[in-house]
Design a protein around this nucleic acid. Structure first.
Lengths: 201, 201
DNA sequence: GCGTTGACATGATGATTATCATACAACCGC
DNA sequence: GCGGTTGTATGATAATCATCATGTCAACGC
């Protein structure tokens, strides 16, 4: 039709959001084009008016996820002193609510294991997104302790993503929460954030 | 036939090894029953004489992977003093050779992201395998520093698995190696292993 | 108001897949 | 050497899926 000028654009955004959620929630190979379109309130036929292929959708969805992740980082850190900002971000990342909402969670924890099987363009977007996130983290760390900020940021993110993924593998709820709490304490202590700024758990 | 008494058993082991490799290398959803059987030198028809279903195969393959991982832990630690043993294991885990051999690598790094999508039995085996590995690690850590051994072991494994997975996502070889080296240093320092026992890389 | 256009729907196609029924072939005890 | 057992092969079935050709219908320019 000609609905508005930007109708198609908004539809595309809806499809992307749906795809990003489904892919993080169930894995690329378990997500079908028809299902994504249905989630956006459409049928499968129009898909190829928006994306060249499923691989193309995956690539764009990965960018979308990292935009999301970066926005979340900003939301948790902006307007706070470095120590407070870092503390807040770590707590949010390793929170049970983040663990339980896989569909909207950090792509590092949800997809990194499957990434080597993805097409080159998707991998490139993923790498870019990771670099951006680490750089932002490192910038904050640098304000705390001038030395080693990059190294600390990579290490912290590796542990956070690893712990989040691990916490999702175990069925025992107590064990799962313990993994999160444990890494929260460890990452904090490594970054010199030992005074807590919000509740534990 | 009646080849030997244990012919079927050995065939089953071959199928399992093949499945474990394929699943770690490409992800469950990209591995077909026929392909696994072909890898073991058979055709797809006989599959159901060995396994009830593909899910059953997955479950057994996960146990197989953790047996592998545990054996690798023993190989790298047995007959060494605790500090040396830990150092050696960390180096091996975060080595480029481990990164590059996904098909035979640690299931934590390869599969944890996809685990929430797997059937309950497979998840249970995964959890058991993880507990066993962490317990073994913690036992070593305890010999080094009585305090906090469990917590340190979980944290170390989370960072190691996370870093390994991360190192596999980036296309830039230098960056990838840097991630490994960086986490190697971080984990070591956390465990008080700052005297290196083998070369870096 | 009429035709054009662009967004989406319907339905088909071919590929891949897990699963299973059945056939075969080798080896045992006899 | 024969019959029965057992491990594997052949082939079929039904489901799922990405992709695409074609149809429909609303709104806008004229």
């Amino acid at each position: 039709m000609r609905y508005d000028d930007n109708h198609k654009e908004r539809t595309r955004a809806r499809v992307l959001a749906e795809a990003a959620a489904a892919i993080r929630g169930k894995g690329v190979e378990r997500v079908g084009v028809a299902e994504v379109m249905a989630g956006a309130g459409l049928t499968h036929g129009g898909f190829y008016a928006h994306f060249k292929s499923k691989d193309d959708l995956l690539t764009e969805a990965i960018s979308y996820m990292f935009d999301d992740a970066y926005a979340s980082f900003l939301r948790h850190t902006e307007g706070r002193a470095p120590a407070d900002a870092l503390s807040n971000y770590i707590d949010a990342y390793l929170a049970t609510s983040h663990r339980d909402d896989r569909a909207h969670s950090c792509p590092l924890a949800a997809l990194s294991g499957d990434l080597p099987n993805m097409p080159a363009l998707a991998r490139a977007r993923f790498a870019d997104g990771t670099e951006r996130l680490v750089a932002a983290l490192a910038k904050l760390v640098k304000k705390l302790c001038a030395k080693n900020a990059e190294a600390l940021a990579w290490s912290a993110l590796a542990e956070m993503a690893g712990a989040l993924a691990l916490s999702r593998t175990v069925s025992d709820a107590d064990r799962s929460t313990q993994i999160l709490r444990n890494s929260r304490a460890m990452v904090r202590s490594r970054l010199g954030l030992d005074r807590p700024t919000s509740r534990g758990g």
